[in-house]
């Protein structure tokens, strides 16, 4: 094999490696996680008639949680409908497009009309804070959960 041929072979080999890397990179682009952040809050009425609220935040997507933080969760009753407010802040300087949905639960823990609330797209500009609000579908709701996910096609 002449020097010229060897040089060409090496060159061709590098192209194959480059092609494989590009092909694999293209294959994996768009595979963002469908897991997100979940915040839940329940309102329990104690014997004295006092309402006690408990909150919980579960992070299933560390990458998303680095950008979006649940700052506060509040709930009150409008008439007898539970109203939820979740305050978020964008910790990043860039705009974040994400989606959220509320789920509503009775005091017994039974979910009300599962899968009826739709995912709602939201834009959060750099360092912006925003409140997301939801109203329970009926007066039986005593607990809510908010699910936040990246905005992807999945």
């Amino acid at each position: 094999m002449s020097d010229h041929t060897r040089a060409t072979s090496r060159h061709t080999g590098l192209n194959y490696y480059g092609f494989v890397v590009i092909l694999m990179t293209l294959s994996f682009i768009g595979c963002s996680s469908t897991a997100g952040i979940e915040g839940s809050m329940s309102a329990t009425t104690e014997q004295g008639g006092q309402t006690v609220y408990s909150k919980q935040v579960v992070i299933n997507n560390d990458s998303l949680a680095r950008d979006i933080q649940i700052v506060d969760m509040k709930s009150d009753f409008v008439g007898n409908l539970l109203r939820a407010q979740v305050s978020l802040v964008n910790k990043d300087n860039d705009t974040i497009n994400f989606q959220f949905k509320f789920s509503w639960f009775e005091e017994s823990g039974r979910e009300i009309d599962p899968d009826t609330d739709a995912w709602t797209p939201v834009i959060l500009y750099g360092k912006e804070s925003k409140s997301l609000q939801g109203v329970a579908p009926n007066p039986n709701a005593k607990e809510f959960k908010i699910k936040i996910r990246e905005l992807s096609n999945e």
Partner: peptide
């Protein structure tokens, strides 16, 4: 569908509260 669902949610939540 997302537009329809957003409109319905906003309108009903606003009316009932």
């Amino acid at each position: 569908s997302t537009d329809l669902q957003q409109i319905v949610n906003k309108m009903v939540d606003s009316l009932l509260t």
